[in-house]
Design a protein around this nucleic acid. Structure first.
Lengths: 191, 191
DNA sequence: TTCCAGAAATATCTAACAGATATAAGCGGC
DNA sequence: GCCGCTTATATCTGTTAGATATTTCTGGAA
């Protein structure tokens, strides 16, 4: 079944903000959509080629020799609207932390606690980032009609980070009773 | 860089619970780890072959002709411990809902609200599932040393579902001010 | 001014992976 | 004895991440 490339949606979406080179596109996707989306060069180049062939984007002289800036066309905008309306294809879950915790008895309590503390610290860093970002965007784009939409995505990130912090504390408490069983953990050889 | 196959970890982990056929393995991963992990047949068969060649699993007579049951070996258990100790490779984010909301002005407020309501309903279904699962596992595995570990993963799912519900409400409120503008997707492209 | 380091930029290749699909054996009901 | 279902094995294709090769441009040191 279709298994439509979601890359197309992200690329057209980014170009709908303003024209860019492929390189800048990658940067924009990483910096702006990075909280909930990612694309690799390996996808971006072929996708831009296909979109050009279909007339959804046009290639213009880039900022230097051999460089191209891509501009979205009217048909590209229509195509974007079409793609955004397609049903969401859920990404299959792949959470390495939970996989390790599930087999925590094999991994050892100590290492589990370590992983949880790391995850919590990461989430705290992210949380600070989201809070700063929300303030910055709210000020800079005060009158943009895009603002409320962007704020919903930032809020998702912020809440998710808060959630991880609270969960990590609960998980640490759940593992609190388990004795630090020296038989299980740390096989010296790996890493 | 290594780009270690995470499939190996999940397969060995599942087999560490008890011997299974490849088919049952897929079922087990879907039903037991399904909240945070997924594997496809396309990965499971080649991985089992490779693990057999390395002596980490052994192939036994299966429940019927041509069928094989796989058993984890001692070296397989050691390998699992090694893999669990490797650093977590984070899955690149790919959230189709947030991608659509980010470009919400192009998609239209109405559709955004629809998507949010769907997401909330999904989360409510999931939440009920997690709560039931936590009760069931707590009772059935009351004395299992694995229980606290499993409970941390279920709690992650439950909290995540609760989080989506609260976020969806906030997002709907954020979009509340925007007029329903049926013609919304103005391709004026001014932006 | 030339040289060099590093950033910007373009492009390609491989391994990992999801999902679809082909096939067949056993099993119950009718 | 046929049909449909589940169990089971296996493979193929399109999607994707990430590594890497290469070139052009820019700023600073010699």
């Amino acid at each position: 079944m279709a298994r439509r490339s979601q890359t197309e949606t992200a690329v057209l979406g980014a170009l709908s903000m303003h024209p860019m080179t492929a390189y800048a596109l990658r940067e924009a996707i990483r910096d702006v959509l990075g909280h909930f989306w990612s694309e690799s060069f390996g996808q971006i180049y072929p996708t831009l080629g296909a979109l050009e062939r279909q007339g959804h984007v046009e290639r213009r002289e880039g900022p230097r020799s051999g460089s191209s800036t891509f501009v979205i066309t009217d048909s590209g905008t229509a195509r974007l609207r079409e793609l955004l309306n397609e049903p969401i294809t859920a990404a299959p879950p792949r959470n390495g932390l939970l996989l390790r915790l599930f087999f925590g008895r094999t991994l050892g309590v100590r290492k589990c606690r370590e992983l949880l503390l790391e995850a919590k610290a990461d989430a705290e860093r992210n949380l600070a980032g989201y809070e700063g970002l929300a303030r910055k965007i709210s000020a800079e784009e005060k009158d943009s009609p895009d603002l409320p939409y962007v704020l919903t995505t930032i809020s998702a990130g912020r809440r998710s980070a808060e959630n991880v912090i609270a969960w990590a504390d609960e998980a640490l408490a759940l593992l609190g009773d388990i004795p630090a069983d020296d038989t299980t953990p740390t096989n010296g050889e790996s890493s």
